[in-house]
């Protein structure tokens, strides 16, 4: 049977391009481009595969800022049918993110809600649990494998010491692991077509205090010795000495 699939997409700073101001130790974020968050891509891939197998529709929601349309275009190129970009994202306010996304999900028909298990910038990993609690839906996390059949999903979920195979009735929320699939690289034609597709951009209407006050946000100082050898032989001797000292 065809499914209505909603996939949550995050945009993050291109972390390799974030520089540190050497005099203040603060990150320089101005002008740093955004990219498609790693596990969000796996979530989109899984959503599109489900649609290709069973039919249905994939709707993506991105809570970010107005630059989010770029990432959404990539999601379109991968096979997303309709996208909503909601602006008003606040760094570190997971409660706001959860409520904005949950409110939007509840306005869209949804059988399966997909998201990444943990995002590559903050790694909080709280979002799936929060959204499932707000919407009152069963939640299965860290999926290695996902199968849908009728009104039910079966998921292999990776845990700390064991993997669990579980079942839940739809609608349900599923967070995916990186191992679940290899996200596709869309062909050029699809990317061009994606650029022309209609996109919904709206402003978040919900306000939530984070309850958190940031005291500082600085690069950790490296206190390493940094003794670097261009001379292989000398370096090897010195390093062997260090290893012997520790292993003796």
């Amino acid at each position: 049977m065809p499914y209505n699939i909603v996939v949550l997409v995050k945009q993050i700073y291109d972390l390799e391009l974030v520089k540190i101001n050497s005099s203040t130790g603060e990150p320089v974020l101005e002008g740093v481009p955004f990219r498609f968050e790693t596990l969000s891509k796996n979530a989109v891939e899984e959503a599109v595969r489900l649609k290709e197998k069973h039919g249905g529709k994939v709707t993506a929601i991105l809570f970010g800022n107005d630059k989010g349309t770029q990432v959404m275009k990539e999601a379109y190129a991968m096979g997303v049918d309709e996208g909503f970009v909601i602006t008003g994202y606040q760094e570190g306010n997971v409660a706001l993110t959860a409520r904005v996304l949950a409110a939007k999900i509840s306005q869209i028909p949804h059988d399966i809600v997909l998201l990444g298990n943990q995002s590559a910038d903050s790694m909080s990993g709280l979002l799936g649990g929060k959204i499932s609690a707000i919407l009152g839906l069963p939640y299965v996390s860290n999926a290695l494998k996902l199968e849908a059949s009728g009104q039910k999903i079966t998921v292999e979920s990776a845990g700390e010491a064991e993997n669990m195979k579980v079942e839940a009735d739809l609608p349900a929320v599923v967070s995916v692991s990186q191992e679940i699939n290899e996200p596709r690289f869309p062909p050029v034609m699809q990317i061009i077509q994606a650029g022309r597709k209609k996109m919904n951009v709206e402003q978040a209407q919900i306000r939530v205090e984070s309850g958190i006050k940031v005291l500082s946000r600085l690069a950790p100082k490296s206190e390493r010795k940094k003794v670097i050898f261009d001379d292989m032989d000398k370096g090897a001797q010195e390093i062997a000495k260090v290893i012997k000292e520790v292993t003796k």
Binding site: V94, Q118, S124, G125, L127, G129, A133, A158, G159, S175
Partner: peptide, 23 residues
Amino acid sequence: STSLGRDIAGYISEKMNVTVAHE
């Protein structure tokens, strides 16, 4: 902070309406 731990923290924080200091 394990996969199950983070999921539980997210779920409970919404049910109790409290803030989580994460990771």
